[in-house]
């Protein structure tokens, strides 16, 4: 494992901690898209089917479990916690995420490394992760004002993707057999989706003003 990959994982972990902190500290999930969170929970459940079949390292196993547990806990909290769920911006979170699900699954059936149950679900999770942030970005754009913790949550998620790209570039040059084209191309698409958000995040940071996205 290289430093970029590790930094990426830590950014990912930080983004989840920031989100949990926001929900627990403010007892509110306003500005957070339940649809994106549901998609992420599904991404981890579909991808980590290999928990039962392949052992990579203790680090990998623990991180996989942390991602599965934290993402399902967030979804559970937004749906079931009687205080938190009242702050959910349901009327703004209207992105039709079932289309993303169907498209990702269809693509996974067509483009995968092997036509097996596990490989199809792995490819599905990669495609779904690439687009899972869309309902969240649309929700932020609709609500206009973005609170600090929500902005930081999306920022850390974007940073995680950026570090993974550096990781792939590093691996491409240092490893002889590194070819994970499905993950790399989907990763590039996913990171590109954050470009707009990063631009406005940078502007607000530079001017020291509240993050505001144009309608």
């Amino acid at each position: 494992m290289n430093i970029f990959r590790f930094a990426g994982d830590m950014m990912h972990l930080t983004s989840i901690l920031v989100l949990l902190l926001k929900i627990y500290a403010t007892k509110s999930c306003s500005g957070i898209s339940l649809k994106t969170q549901e998609l992420y929970a599904l991404v981890f459940l579909a991808r980590y089917l290999d928990l039962f079949t392949d052992f990579i390292s203790v680090y990998n196993t623990i991180m996989k479990l942390v991602f599965i547990v934290s993402s399902t806990a967030i979804v559970w909290c937004m749906k079931r916690d009687r205080v938190v769920r009242r702050s959910y911006d349901k009327q703004l979170d209207t992105f039709r995420h079932y289309f993303l699900l169907a498209a990702s699954f269809a693509l996974a059936l067509l483009v995968n490394e092997k036509f097996t149950f596990q490989e199809i679900f792995w490819a599905f999770s990669i495609y779904l992760e690439a687009v899972a942030i869309l309902p969240q970005l649309v929700l932020l754009q609709r609500s206009g004002n973005v609170d600090n913790l929500t902005g930081q949550y999306v920022f850390f998620l974007g940073a995680y993707r950026a570090f993974y790209i550096l990781n792939w570039i590093y691996r491409y040059f240092t490893e002889t057999h590194f070819s994970r084209w499905i993950a790399c191309i989907s990763g590039l698409v996913q990171t590109a989706l954050y470009a707009d958000f990063f631009y406005y995040y940078y502007i607000s940071w530079k001017n020291n003003t509240k993050l505001k996205l144009p309608a």
Binding site: H12, D50, N60, E119
Partner: peptide, 10 residues
């Protein structure tokens, strides 16, 4: 034969 490398990333 096409061998798929282990998936070591998260």
């Amino acid at each position: 034969c096409f061998e798929v490398p282990p998936k070591d990333e998260l």
